[in-house]
Design a protein around this nucleic acid. Structure first.
Lengths: 194, 194, 194, 194
DNA sequence: ATCTAAGCGAGACGGTACGTCACGTCTTGGG
DNA sequence: CCCAAGACGTGACGTACCGTCTCGCTTAGAT
C-alpha cells in the first residue's frame, strides 16, 4: 500500500477531462440510457480499457461526470433571514432537478447498487448536498426564532427535499417555483413557533 | 374505438398468467436487472414474440407484473378517527416499499419513459394509489376537526409520500415504522387547527 | 380410399388461383427468398392453414406456382428439319431461364428435397420437359439422316441442356442466343454422320 | 489499397480455423440448411458477432468454408496424353460433386447473390477451377493432335462441365464414373480432328 | 542517452440480450 | 366443415454493448 510505484507513463489528465465531458454531454442529450461505455469512448477518442481502468461500469462513470459538474448551491452569505435563504435554496434545487441532467441523476440513484464508494459519494454530493445546506439554514432559523426548537430536523428535511425528488421521478405534476413555494408553506407551518 | 375486431385465436390467458407470475418472481429474486425478456420467456415456457405481442419491452412487462400483484391498501372502514387511519396507511406504504419489490417498483418509475399508457397506469396504480387513499383520509380528518380547512392538500400529500419514496431510492437512512411516525408527527403539526 | 366423402364446404378454387398468382408474383419480384408463406397468405387474402392444407411448405408452393405458369415449349409441327427445330427450342429454353423466374426455378431445384411428389413433378414439367422435346427431335433428326444412329442420346441431351442450366446458376458468362448457337454447333459436330 | 491499417487486436486465427472447421462439419452433416450462424457459433465456441465481423451472412461463411477445404484437382504431370488426363479429371469432378459437400457447394451457388467478392471467389475456386484445368488440357490435346484446332473452347468446356453440375442439382439420373465416360465420349467425338 | 514500464488508441474476443421474422400448428367466430 | 384471422411455441436472424484481452505506439522517470 505504501509502496505505490510511480514509474511509467502517468495518467493522461486531458483524456480524463475529455471522458467526463463526453459522458456529461451524452447524459444531457439522451439521458442515462444514452451513456454507454462505447459511446463515451468513441466521443472522447479514448479506448474502452482506459474507461474501465478508472470506472468499473457505466453508472459509475455517469456518477463521476455528474459529481464533477454538480452546480454548487447558492452560497448563504448570512445577511438575510435564514427562512428566506431556505426558500431560495429549495427553488434552486427544484430548478436543477427539473432539467434532463437532474432526471438523470435521480435515475442513477434509483438504479445503482448502494454499497460502492462512488455511489455514496454521488449520493452525498449530488443528491443530499442540498440537505446539508438546508440543515444549517434550519439551525440558523431556530436561532432567529422563526422555527421553534425541538423539532425533528431530519424528518423536516425529508418533508422538504423528499417531495422534490418524488416529483422529479414520478412526474405526476409539474416541478416549478410555485410548487417549491407551496411545499415550503405547508412544511414551515408545522415548524414555526407556537 | 368501438370497432375492436375480435377475430382470430384469442389471447391465451393461462400463458399470460404464467408470464406475469414469472416476471414477478424474477423481480423478487433479482430486481429489475434480472427481468430480461429471455428469462421470462424461458421460465414461463412462452416464446419471445408472444411477450412482445403484449408488452413493448421489459420495463412494460415489469410494470404489468407489479400492477397485477400490487397489494391493496388496508381498507378504511371509517370506524376510527381518520388521522389514525392515515398513520396506519403510511406505515403500510413504508413497509411495502421497503421490500425488494418496492425498490423494483421505484426503480422502474425512475427509468421509464413517461408518455406511455402502461407507465401512467403503473404510476397511478402502484405509486400514487396510496396518495388517493391519503387524500380521502385528509378530507375526513378535516370534517372531524383534526386538520384545519383551507390547507393545500396536494402539497400535504407530497410532504407525506414524497419522503417515503425518497428514502426507498436514496437509502440514506432506514425505512421503518419509526420513520413513518416521526414523519407524520412533523407534517401533521403543520396541518392541525390553530 | 374409395369412399371419398364430399360433405362440407368444398375447396375454394378462386382462393387457390389467388394463391398461385400471388406466389408467382412474389417469385418474379424478389426471387425465391421473397416467397414466404406469410407474404403469400397476406397478398392472397388467405389464411395460412389454407396454404398448408394444399402445400407442405414454401418450396412446394413455389414449385406449384411455377408448374402452373410454365410456358409450353414451341410446338414442333414437323414441317421443317428436326435439327432446326432443336436449335429453335434451345434458344427458347435459354431465353426462359435467363429471366428472374428461370433463376427462381433453378434455385428451387437446387435447394429442394428430391424425394417428394411435387419435386419430381416440378423437375419433369419445368426443368426436364425441354429434354423430352429434345429427345424426340433427335430421333427425328436421326431418321432425317442429320444425326448418325447409335449415339448415346441421354449423354447428348445432357451435353445440350446441362450447360444452359449451368450458366443460369453460375452466371460466369452471359446467356443469350449466341451462346445457344455456339453450344449447338459444338455438340452437333459430334453427332453428325461420319 | 496500400493503406491497410493494422491497429488494434489482430484477428484470432485459431478461432477463425475453429469456425471454418465447424462450418464445414455442419455442411457435411446436414447440408446447407444445417449451417446456421448460431450452430456454428456454438460449435466453434465463438460469439456470433465474431462471425458477422468476418462474414456478412451464413452463405458467405459456407462459401468460405468450402473454399478453404476445396480439394485441388489432381495435378496434370504432363506425362501421358492430355485426353486421358482430361477424362481422369472429369471423373474426379464427378466424384467430388456426388458427395454431400458437392451438393452443398452447388446449392450455395444457386441461392447466392452474385455481386459479392466472396461469391466470385467461391465460383472461381470451387465451381470453375476444374474448368481452368480442363482448358489447359484441351490446349495440350490440340497440340498433341487429338483435338482439332479452331474449336470453340468455352462452348466445349460448357458441354463437359455443365452436365455434371446439372445432374448434381437435378438428380434425374445417377452421377458416376460411367456417366463421366459416356459424356466425354459424346463430347470428344465432336472435337476430334476430321 | 537510453532503457523500460506503464498508459495510450484501437479494436477483436466470448458473451448476453435485444427486438424481429418466418415457420408450422392450433383455435376461434362467421358463412 | 371450410374459411380468414390471428395467437401460439420455436428457433434463427442480425445488432448493440458488455467487460476483457491483446496489439504497437508514445511518454517520461529511472538507470
Amino acid at each position: 500500500m505504501a509502496d505505490e510505484e510511480k514509474r511509467g507513463r502517468p495518467r493522461d489528465m486531458a483524456a480524463r477531462r475529455r471522458v467526463l465531458t463526453a459522458a456529461y454531454a451524452l447524459l444531457e442529450e439522451g439521458g442515462v440510457t444514452a451513456l454507454t461505455m462505447e459511446a463515451v469512448a468513441a466521443r472522447a477518442k479514448v479506448g474502452k480499457p482506459m474507461l474501465y481502468r478508472s470506472w468499473p461500469n457505466a453508472q459509475a462513470l455517469a456518477m463521476a461526470a455528474l459529481i464533477e459538474a454538480a452546480p454548487d448551491a447558492p452560497e448563504d452569505d448570512g445577511s438575510g433571514p435564514a427562512l428566506a435563504a431556505l426558500r431560495r435554496q429549495v427553488r434552486f434545487v427544484v430548478e436543477v432537478f427539473a432539467s434532463r441532467i437532474g432526471r438523470s441523476a435521480a435515475a442513477l440513484v434509483a438504479s445503482a447498487t448502494r454499497d460502492t464508494e462512488i455511489f455514496k459519494s454521488f449520493r452525498s454530493q449530488v443528491i443530499l448536498s442540498s440537505r446539508t445546506v438546508g440543515r444549517a439554514l434550519i439551525s440558523r432559523a431556530v436561532e432567529e426564532g422563526d422555527i421553534r426548537p425541538g423539532i425533528d430536523v431530519e424528518a423536516a428535511l425529508d418533508a422538504i427535499y423528499g417531495p422534490v425528488f418524488f416529483r422529479v421521478l414520478v412526474g405526476h405534476e409539474g416541478l416549478d417555483a410555485g410548487f417549491a413555494d407551496r411545499l415550503m408553506d405547508t412544511v414551515l407551518e408545522g415548524l414555526r413557533p407556537r
